[in-house]
Computed example of a mutant assay.
Amino acid sequence: MSTIIAVASGKGGVGKTLITASLAVALQRRGHTVLAVDADMGLRNLDLMFGMQDDVLFDIGDAVKGSCRPEEAIISIVEGLDFLAASQKHTWEKIDAPSYHYILETLSKEYDYTVIDCPPGRGRAFKDAAVIADRTFFVVEPTWSSMRDAARVMQYFNKHKRFNYDVLFNNFYGRDPGYVSVQEMLQLLSPETIAGILPHDPDIHAFAQKGTLIHAPASIPFFMAMEETMVYIETKESPHIDGLLTLLPEKETSLLGYSPELPQNNFQSDGIMKGLAAAELQKAAAILRGVSFPDKEETGEKTPIPPQISLRQRRQQSMSWRHYRR
């Protein structure tokens, strides 16, 4: 049975579309058949990554509305890798979600993997796009605001007993005074939830901007790091963090050629943002551990927590439910 992977984020601009395209390319290179799907209705960009912006005649919106057969909306990029564009004319408010789910699940049966580029946030658009996924990757950039927003989406998943999610770090440096380090992020996350660490790599961005991502060599640091994520997807073997850290570039100076002396209040702000991110992650982790916590913001009451079981068991339950539903 095909595996559907949703690529999501708490906020936009963290490289979610780039990750979706790169995952599709990396899986295809390992011999899998892949369908890359853009689900960001009205704001599609996945076509640009593959240089397919001039080749889209029909999209998923046309298939949902019956203007074409679903197969007619699929564009072949290379052998083993196909693309399905999001509607550029209609937002999710104009898309019938059950029809979208039925079409995508039917199409996905012809592929080993289906990778979905979801809308950012945790609104209805994201929920409709990601609900059919077997597993979800939350893309996080090296900022506390990105981590905090991702943690809020994790809380939503936990409350709905959807534990098949992982965090994928993107665009990280080994050392840069302007960004949060991997080590700081790792202190707040369980190792079981990390799907990979992708380095800042100007080459991958250059290929993406030119629409030639499919031709990016496997030897660049970004795709070398992506191999660990591929192994994790195929075998569930946790990535080797120490090896991934060696691929991270170091940036010690600003663009002006010097290391800036940050004022004291910047360090205080960083501490506040870290504290907020940590608080949101603690809420998300509480459900996984089977501990109640006050959630006045949404319910005014304590969130009910299911009996405590291991994360592995919870993920297996989520996967079993997804297969049963399909």
Results as ranks from 00 to 15, higher is better:
229 T>S: 10
297 E>Y: 12
302 K>F: 14
318 S>L: 06
313 Q>N: 05
287 I>W: 00
284 A>N: 01
268 Q>T: 11
262 L>E: 08
312 R>A: 09
244 L>V: 04
279 A>Q: 12
318 S>G: 09
290 G>Q: 04
229 T>A: 02
258 Y>D: 07
247 L>V: 04
305 I>L: 05
280 E>K: 12
294 P>L: 00
231 V>R: 15
221 P>H: 12
285 A>C: 11
294 P>W: 00
283 K>T: 02
315 R>F: 03
315 R>N: 03
291 V>S: 07
293 F>D: 05
293 F>H: 12
303 T>Q: 09
223 F>K: 09
285 A>D: 09
306 P>M: 02
276 L>W: 10
285 A>Y: 05
281 L>F: 10
221 P>D: 06
276 L>Y: 14
256 L>I: 07
275 G>S: 05
277 A>D: 02
260 P>H: 11
243 G>I: 01
265 N>Y: 13
267 F>G: 06
252 E>W: 14
229 T>F: 04
287 I>Y: 00
286 A>G: 04
250 E>C: 08
289 R>K: 12
299 T>A: 07
264 Q>A: 15
274 K>H: 13
240 H>R: 13
262 L>D: 11
256 L>N: 13
318 S>M: 07
308 Q>D: 12
311 L>Y: 04
292 S>D: 15
247 L>M: 08
261 E>N: 15
301 E>L: 13
319 M>L: 15
245 L>Y: 03
240 H>D: 15
247 L>N: 09
298 E>Y: 15
311 L>W: 02
318 S>R: 10
306 P>N: 05
230 M>T: 06
278 A>C: 06
